[in-house]
Design a protein around this nucleic acid. Structure first.
Length: 214
DNA sequence: TGAATGATTTACT
DNA sequence: GTAAATCATTCAA
């Protein structure tokens, strides 16, 4: 008998914290092609990340951490890389981010779209539509609903920490996909920061949200 | 305590 | 293409 149970699927192991503990633009670009994995109530959903945006507070006016704003909501952004930041917006939608960089740097990557890889039936049920629809996961609020990601997840560790149980929500390895860059979406209030090309999209992927780059 | 607003989505013209 | 839905968070008072 082996002392340790072998991993059922090597590709579904959490990325190490070293992936996240780097400059936010680097992490955002390298997120494209990685897998997003969530297991809850015995059901697992997996998607390939095809769109992500970098938010670099405190100088980035588009970031919730602009000006060093440290509140109950933004607190996870100031903590250790590899944790989740999930917020509620427009009275209806959750958005999922990963914390990057060094402790004290409120830098995050917003995961804006994924291509479903596994658990499409579960996603379709949560979204109330057929599993072959692009609209299953082609937006930040849509993928949170499809993956059952909510405010309960904000602040949780996406990495395997010593002595802690393995995370049920995490990013896993995947092939780096060619990316195109574009200005970020929905931040018209952010002045000079509006035009920064900090949105990374998988080139030509159908699940990239609107407006499509190019 | 109150008012403004938003890292969106959906339905509708 | 436009507009409505809907409420936690934030900040001013």
């Amino acid at each position: 008998m082996p002392k340790e149970k072998p991993s059922p699927n090597r590709r579904l192991r959490p990325l190490p914290r070293t992936f996240y503990s780097r400059p936010v633009l680097t992490v955002a670009r390298e997120c494209i092609g990685k897998s997003l994995v969530h297991s809850i109530e015995g059901r697992t959903t997996v998607g390939a990340i095809v769109e992500a945006e970098a938010y670099r507070g405190p100088e980035d006016r588009a970031a919730h951490s602009f000006g060093g704003r440290r509140t109950k909501r933004t607190e996870p952004m100031f903590g250790r890389a590899g944790h989740a930041y999930v917020f509620f917006v427009y009275g209806m939608h959750w958005n999922f981010n990963v914390i990057t960089g060094r402790v004290g740097d409120p830098h995050v990557v917003l995961i804006r779209a994924v291509e479903p890889l596994a658990g499409k039936g579960v996603m379709a049920s949560r979204r109330g539509m057929r599993e072959d629809r692009i609209e299953l996961t082609n937006g930040p609020g849509k993928l949170c609903q499809a993956f059952a990601i909510t405010g309960d997840h904000t602040g949780i560790d996406l990495c395997k920490a010593r002595g802690a149980p393995a995370p049920t929500l995490f990013l896993a390895d995947g092939p780096q996909l060619p990316t195109v860059r574009a200005p970020r979406v929905g931040i018209d209030y952010a002045g000079a920061w509006v035009s920064k090309p900090w949105r990374f999209c998988a080139r030509g992927n159908r699940f990239v949200s609107r407006p499509r780059p190019g």
